[in-house]
Nucleic acid binder design. Structure first.
Lengths: 195, 195
DNA sequence: TCTAGAAAAATGGACGCTCGTTCATTATTC
DNA sequence: GAATAATGAACGAGCGTCCATTTTTCTAGA
């Protein structure tokens, strides 16, 4: 049974996915041809189809494994939860994350028109949102603020930062983050007591 | 000089652009074929090229004329400025605006990879942002909040709402808007005096 | 007012090209 | 040397675009 090691198979798959992610971040899903991925990966055209059923399958795999590894933790003091969220925002300013941010925007667009991708992409947004909502539990908030809606707003603040970062190199991440910090200061814990 | 009226020419151009916008909102720019636009518009294939140089030119025209007609006004009392912004958010919840929101997300994705589109799209974001920044001038803000950065955050809050609205039909626009209202209440005018 | 005809508007089949995908073949592995 | 990994030329389909042709429009002469 001549077969190559599982590690080799996994590495090949990774090789394809990495090349695809780079192409997709650069040109979007539908302006990237299979030949582009083949060229970028250094693999032959036919071999891709031993690892993926087709281009749509490659796209789905990319979207599936796309999620921010960063976790907005629900534990710890209120201050530490806020600090974790602010770090989450700060990470968007890291130049090394630029390709990842661009790929994310492409996924947004694909999610709008492709139900299968939308299901996958929603998980990548719903999970952080419920995590944020959970982190807000027990946090004293200013009057009129719904925790679930505020979680959505905090996600928006990240999404908008992601978008604006991708196409505006003049954006000052630090100023953005510290202003969000000041806003949270005003919204969270208006009266200092609570747990 | 047998020629048709200028009004007729303008109407034909509009007919093509409306069809293109509908297709682009549904399928994105690069999954929409010229045949799709031809079919949707009820016009022949060749005629499109008498009004536009090619597909890229149609895309550029769509992006050029895409901007929220709503103006976040810089005049009036602080309360009226806040109310105008909240109406801006509310407008995203209007089902009639759904196609426009989807088209906007497609434009975001195209702006990431196409410099010409990015220039056009940035104008559609920079203009509201500077308008918001201008509206914030003279408004008393909580400590640590930079007006320019806050303007970006407010744009983000709209962009995130736009995105989440397009792919999550369970989103409660009213709850979102009223929570943003409460946040603004906490951030703006912390000490009641000022002009 | 009617009509002939020149000029522009509009058509849609055809063209070359690129796309995603396949498969007969070769190279590699155990 | 048998089974799998890997190749890359080739295929049909569909793309954006063009252009020979037909239809419509407006003017000029009667």
């Amino acid at each position: 049974m001549p077969k190559v090691s599982d590690a080799h198979l996994a590495a090949r798959r990774r090789q394809i996915l990495d090349a695809a992610a780079a192409c997709f971040a650069r040109d979007g899903f539908h302006r990237t041809s299979m030949q582009d991925i083949v060229r970028e990966s250094g693999i032959s055209a036919g071999l891709v189809y031993r690892y993926f059923e087709g281009k749509d399958d490659v796209i789905a795999a990319i979207v599936t494994e796309w999620h921010d590894q960063r976790q907005v933790l629900a534990t710890g003091t209120v201050d530490s939860r806020v600090a974790a969220y602010l770090d989450y925002l700060r990470s968007a300013g890291d130049p090394a994350a630029a390709a990842r941010l661009r790929l994310g925007v492409q996924i947004w667009a694909e999610a709008v028109r492709n139900p299968r991708i939308r299901e996958l992409a929603r998980r990548n947004v719903d999970d952080p949102r419920t995590a944020v909502a959970a982190a807000l539990a027990g946090v004293p908030l200013a009057a009129g603020i719904d925790p679930g809606a505020l979680a959505r707003v905090l996600i928006s603040i990240y999404q908008g930062l992601q978008l604006q970062t991708t196409w505006d190199e003049t954006l000052d991440n630090e100023a953005y983050v510290s202003t969000v910090a000041a806003v949270l200061m005003a919204v969270v814990d208006p009266a200092p007591p609570a747990s």
